[in-house]
Design a protein around this nucleic acid. Structure first.
Lengths: 108, 108
DNA sequence: TGCAAAGTTGCAAAATAGAGAAACAAGGGG
DNA sequence: CCCCTTGTTTCTCTATTTTGCAACTTTGCA
Protein backbone atom coordinates (compact mmCIF):
# COMPACT_ATOMS: atom_id res chain seq x y z
CA UNK A 1 0.00 0.00 0.00
CA UNK A 2 1.58 3.28 -1.10
CA UNK A 3 1.15 6.65 0.59
CA UNK A 4 -1.48 7.79 -1.88
CA UNK A 5 -3.69 4.76 -1.31
CA UNK A 6 -3.14 5.06 2.41
CA UNK A 7 -4.37 8.65 2.35
CA UNK A 8 -7.37 7.63 0.27
CA UNK A 9 -8.39 4.84 2.63
CA UNK A 10 -7.97 7.15 5.58
CA UNK A 11 -10.14 9.80 3.95
CA UNK A 12 -12.90 7.32 3.25
CA UNK A 13 -12.68 5.89 6.73
CA UNK A 14 -13.03 9.37 8.22
CA UNK A 15 -16.06 10.05 6.10
CA UNK A 16 -17.67 6.82 7.22
CA UNK A 17 -16.75 7.54 10.82
CA UNK A 18 -18.64 10.81 10.59
CA UNK A 19 -21.63 8.75 9.48
CA UNK A 20 -21.25 6.17 12.24
CA UNK A 21 -23.54 7.68 14.86
CA UNK A 22 -27.35 7.31 14.89
CA UNK A 23 -27.83 10.92 15.92
CA UNK A 24 -25.71 12.17 13.05
CA UNK A 25 -27.67 10.04 10.60
CA UNK A 26 -30.85 11.49 12.04
CA UNK A 27 -29.53 15.03 11.75
CA UNK A 28 -28.57 14.44 8.13
CA UNK A 29 -32.09 13.20 7.44
CA UNK A 30 -33.50 16.37 8.96
CA UNK A 31 -31.09 18.46 6.91
CA UNK A 32 -32.41 16.73 3.85
CA UNK A 33 -35.73 18.50 4.35
CA UNK A 34 -34.30 21.99 4.73
CA UNK A 35 -31.42 23.91 6.28
CA UNK A 36 -31.58 24.13 10.07
CA UNK A 37 -29.85 26.26 12.66
CA UNK A 38 -28.17 24.47 15.56
CA UNK A 39 -30.70 25.60 18.11
CA UNK A 40 -33.78 24.39 16.25
CA UNK A 41 -32.14 21.17 15.20
CA UNK A 42 -31.09 20.42 18.78
CA UNK A 43 -34.70 20.82 19.94
CA UNK A 44 -35.95 18.76 17.01
CA UNK A 45 -33.70 15.81 17.76
CA UNK A 46 -33.91 16.26 21.52
CA UNK A 47 -30.34 16.91 22.63
CA UNK A 48 -28.25 19.69 24.17
CA UNK A 49 -27.21 22.35 21.71
CA UNK A 50 -23.56 21.87 22.64
CA UNK A 51 -23.78 18.22 21.69
CA UNK A 52 -25.65 19.04 18.50
CA UNK A 53 -22.93 21.55 17.66
CA UNK A 54 -20.25 18.94 18.12
CA UNK A 55 -22.01 16.39 15.94
CA UNK A 56 -22.54 19.00 13.24
CA UNK A 57 -18.91 20.02 13.33
CA UNK A 58 -17.90 16.43 12.68
CA UNK A 59 -20.17 16.25 9.66
CA UNK A 60 -18.84 19.58 8.45
CA UNK A 61 -15.23 18.55 8.96
CA UNK A 62 -15.50 15.78 6.37
CA UNK A 63 -17.48 17.96 3.98
CA UNK A 64 -20.91 16.37 4.23
CA UNK A 65 -22.58 19.60 5.32
CA UNK A 66 -21.83 23.31 5.14
CA UNK A 67 -22.65 26.19 7.42
CA UNK A 68 -23.47 29.84 6.93
CA UNK A 69 -23.71 32.50 9.60
CA UNK A 70 -26.92 34.51 9.72
CA UNK A 71 -26.65 37.05 12.48
CA UNK A 72 -26.34 35.16 15.75
CA UNK A 73 -27.39 31.86 14.31
CA UNK A 74 -25.59 29.36 12.12
CA UNK A 75 -27.48 27.61 9.39
CA UNK A 76 -26.36 24.16 8.35
CA UNK A 77 -27.31 22.58 5.08
CA UNK A 78 -26.70 19.27 3.39
CA UNK A 79 -23.99 19.34 0.74
CA UNK A 80 -24.35 15.87 -0.70
CA UNK A 81 -27.84 14.39 -0.62
CA UNK A 82 -26.43 11.43 -2.54
CA UNK A 83 -24.77 10.38 0.70
CA UNK A 84 -28.15 9.57 2.17
CA UNK A 85 -29.30 7.74 -0.91
CA UNK A 86 -26.11 5.78 -0.50
CA UNK A 87 -27.11 5.03 3.07
CA UNK A 88 -30.47 3.73 1.93
CA UNK A 89 -28.84 1.62 -0.76
CA UNK A 90 -26.40 0.15 1.70
CA UNK A 91 -29.11 -0.54 4.22
CA UNK A 92 -31.18 -2.29 1.57
CA UNK A 93 -28.23 -4.40 0.50
CA UNK A 94 -27.41 -5.51 3.98
CA UNK A 95 -31.01 -6.16 4.92
CA UNK A 96 -31.53 -8.14 1.74
CA UNK A 97 -28.47 -10.22 2.48
CA UNK A 98 -29.62 -10.86 6.02
CA UNK A 99 -33.03 -11.86 4.78
CA UNK A 100 -31.52 -14.36 2.36
CA UNK A 101 -29.41 -15.67 5.17
CA UNK A 102 -32.48 -16.28 7.30
CA UNK A 103 -34.26 -17.97 4.40
CA UNK A 104 -31.26 -20.20 3.89
CA UNK A 105 -31.25 -21.18 7.53
CA UNK A 106 -34.97 -21.90 7.47
CA UNK A 107 -34.79 -24.02 4.33
CA UNK A 108 -32.22 -26.43 5.76
CA UNK B 1 -38.26 9.97 16.35
CA UNK B 2 -40.19 6.73 16.79
CA UNK B 3 -38.74 3.34 17.68
CA UNK B 4 -38.73 2.15 14.08
CA UNK B 5 -36.74 5.13 12.84
CA UNK B 6 -34.43 4.83 15.81
CA UNK B 7 -33.67 1.22 14.88
CA UNK B 8 -33.11 2.18 11.27
CA UNK B 9 -30.65 4.95 12.14
CA UNK B 10 -28.84 2.62 14.50
CA UNK B 11 -28.54 -0.05 11.81
CA UNK B 12 -27.12 2.41 9.32
CA UNK B 13 -24.74 3.84 11.88
CA UNK B 14 -23.46 0.34 12.68
CA UNK B 15 -22.85 -0.35 9.03
CA UNK B 16 -20.92 2.88 8.62
CA UNK B 17 -18.98 2.15 11.79
CA UNK B 18 -17.84 -1.10 10.24
CA UNK B 19 -16.54 0.96 7.33
CA UNK B 20 -14.85 3.55 9.52
CA UNK B 21 -11.35 2.09 9.68
CA UNK B 22 -8.70 2.49 6.96
CA UNK B 23 -7.58 -1.11 7.33
CA UNK B 24 -11.10 -2.40 6.83
CA UNK B 25 -11.54 -0.24 3.74
CA UNK B 26 -8.29 -1.64 2.43
CA UNK B 27 -9.37 -5.19 3.14
CA UNK B 28 -12.65 -4.62 1.34
CA UNK B 29 -10.74 -3.32 -1.66
CA UNK B 30 -8.63 -6.46 -1.67
CA UNK B 31 -11.74 -8.61 -1.36
CA UNK B 32 -13.07 -6.85 -4.40
CA UNK B 33 -10.39 -8.55 -6.50
CA UNK B 34 -11.05 -12.08 -5.23
CA UNK B 35 -11.86 -14.03 -2.08
CA UNK B 36 -9.02 -14.21 0.43
CA UNK B 37 -8.31 -16.36 3.46
CA UNK B 38 -7.41 -14.61 6.71
CA UNK B 39 -3.80 -15.69 6.61
CA UNK B 40 -3.02 -14.41 3.12
CA UNK B 41 -4.97 -11.23 3.63
CA UNK B 42 -3.13 -10.51 6.87
CA UNK B 43 0.20 -10.84 5.07
CA UNK B 44 -1.06 -8.75 2.16
CA UNK B 45 -2.12 -5.84 4.33
CA UNK B 46 0.73 -6.30 6.80
CA UNK B 47 -0.94 -7.00 10.13
CA UNK B 48 -1.27 -9.83 12.68
CA UNK B 49 -3.70 -12.51 11.64
CA UNK B 50 -5.58 -12.14 14.91
CA UNK B 51 -6.18 -8.48 14.17
CA UNK B 52 -7.16 -9.26 10.60
CA UNK B 53 -9.61 -11.81 11.93
CA UNK B 54 -11.18 -9.26 14.24
CA UNK B 55 -11.55 -6.68 11.50
CA UNK B 56 -13.08 -9.25 9.19
CA UNK B 57 -15.53 -10.34 11.86
CA UNK B 58 -16.74 -6.76 12.15
CA UNK B 59 -17.34 -6.55 8.44
CA UNK B 60 -19.10 -9.91 8.54
CA UNK B 61 -21.25 -8.92 11.50
CA UNK B 62 -22.94 -6.16 9.54
CA UNK B 63 -23.28 -8.34 6.45
CA UNK B 64 -20.74 -6.70 4.15
CA UNK B 65 -18.75 -9.90 3.68
CA UNK B 66 -19.34 -13.63 4.06
CA UNK B 67 -17.06 -16.48 5.03
CA UNK B 68 -16.76 -20.13 4.04
CA UNK B 69 -14.62 -22.77 5.65
CA UNK B 70 -12.26 -24.71 3.40
CA UNK B 71 -10.35 -27.21 5.44
CA UNK B 72 -8.30 -25.34 7.98
CA UNK B 73 -8.70 -22.01 6.30
CA UNK B 74 -11.57 -19.58 6.12
CA UNK B 75 -12.24 -17.80 2.89
CA UNK B 76 -13.84 -14.38 3.00
CA UNK B 77 -15.59 -12.80 0.07
CA UNK B 78 -17.30 -9.51 -0.63
CA UNK B 79 -21.08 -9.64 -0.52
CA UNK B 80 -21.94 -6.12 -1.62
CA UNK B 81 -19.50 -4.60 -4.13
CA UNK B 82 -21.97 -1.73 -4.45
CA UNK B 83 -20.79 -0.58 -1.03
CA UNK B 84 -17.39 0.20 -2.46
CA UNK B 85 -18.77 1.87 -5.54
CA UNK B 86 -20.79 3.86 -3.08
CA UNK B 87 -17.62 4.75 -1.22
CA UNK B 88 -16.01 5.99 -4.41
CA UNK B 89 -19.07 8.03 -5.26
CA UNK B 90 -19.18 9.55 -1.81
CA UNK B 91 -15.49 10.28 -1.85
CA UNK B 92 -15.80 11.97 -5.22
CA UNK B 93 -18.68 14.09 -4.02
CA UNK B 94 -16.91 15.21 -0.90
CA UNK B 95 -13.64 15.82 -2.70
CA UNK B 96 -15.43 17.78 -5.38
CA UNK B 97 -17.05 19.89 -2.69
CA UNK B 98 -13.73 20.48 -0.99
CA UNK B 99 -12.16 21.42 -4.32
CA UNK B 100 -14.90 23.98 -4.94
CA UNK B 101 -14.38 25.25 -1.45
CA UNK B 102 -10.68 25.72 -2.08
CA UNK B 103 -11.38 27.45 -5.39
CA UNK B 104 -13.83 29.72 -3.61
CA UNK B 105 -11.25 30.58 -0.99
CA UNK B 106 -8.61 31.24 -3.62
CA UNK B 107 -10.88 33.45 -5.70
CA UNK B 108 -11.63 35.80 -2.81
C1' DT C 1 -1.54 -40.25 18.04
C1' DG C 2 1.23 -36.25 17.64
C1' DC C 3 2.12 -32.14 15.24
C1' DA C 4 1.72 -28.13 12.38
C1' DA C 5 -1.09 -24.63 10.16
C1' DA C 6 -5.12 -21.51 10.20
C1' DG C 7 -8.47 -18.92 12.90
C1' DT C 8 -10.73 -17.34 16.82
C1' DT C 9 -11.07 -15.67 21.42
C1' DG C 10 -9.64 -13.59 25.89
C1' DC C 11 -7.09 -10.24 28.39
C1' DA C 12 -4.77 -5.95 29.57
C1' DA C 13 -3.11 -1.55 28.04
C1' DA C 14 -3.47 2.41 25.15
C1' DA C 15 -6.11 5.35 22.32
C1' DT C 16 -10.31 7.43 20.94
C1' DA C 17 -15.08 8.94 21.16
C1' DG C 18 -19.24 10.59 23.59
C1' DA C 19 -22.07 13.05 27.12
C1' DG C 20 -22.97 16.65 30.32
C1' DA C 21 -22.10 20.93 32.45
C1' DA C 22 -19.95 25.22 32.48
C1' DA C 23 -17.20 28.80 30.54
C1' DC C 24 -16.43 31.56 26.63
C1' DA C 25 -17.21 34.29 22.09
C1' DA C 26 -20.04 36.90 18.80
C1' DG C 27 -24.00 39.43 17.38
C1' DG C 28 -28.17 42.22 17.73
C1' DG C 29 -31.52 45.12 20.17
C1' DG C 30 -32.80 47.91 23.97
C1' DC D 1 -23.00 50.04 26.89
C1' DC D 2 -25.67 46.09 28.86
C1' DC D 3 -27.80 41.97 28.20
C1' DC D 4 -29.89 38.26 25.84
C1' DT D 5 -29.68 34.73 22.35
C1' DT D 6 -26.99 31.56 19.61
C1' DG D 7 -22.94 28.63 19.04
C1' DT D 8 -18.53 26.88 20.08
C1' DT D 9 -15.06 25.25 23.11
C1' DT D 10 -13.16 23.22 27.31
C1' DC D 11 -13.01 20.02 31.06
C1' DT D 12 -14.01 15.77 33.29
C1' DC D 13 -15.81 11.32 33.44
C1' DT D 14 -17.26 7.19 31.18
C1' DA D 15 -17.68 3.92 27.51
C1' DT D 16 -16.00 1.94 23.39
C1' DT D 17 -12.35 0.65 20.15
C1' DT D 18 -7.93 -0.98 18.82
C1' DT D 19 -3.85 -3.42 19.44
C1' DG D 20 -0.52 -7.04 20.75
C1' DC D 21 0.17 -11.17 22.89
C1' DA D 22 -1.00 -15.63 24.42
C1' DA D 23 -4.09 -19.42 24.81
C1' DC D 24 -7.28 -22.31 22.65
C1' DT D 25 -9.93 -24.86 18.78
C1' DT D 26 -10.23 -27.13 14.54
C1' DT D 27 -8.52 -29.47 10.65
C1' DG D 28 -5.26 -32.10 7.85
C1' DC D 29 -1.45 -35.06 7.61
C1' DA D 30 2.52 -37.99 8.72
Amino acid sequence: MNARDKARYKLRAEMFKALSHPMRIFMLEKLREKPWCVCELAVEVGIEKSIASKHLSQLKRVGLIEDEKRGTLVEYRLVAPCILEMAECAEATVLDKRKKHVELLQST
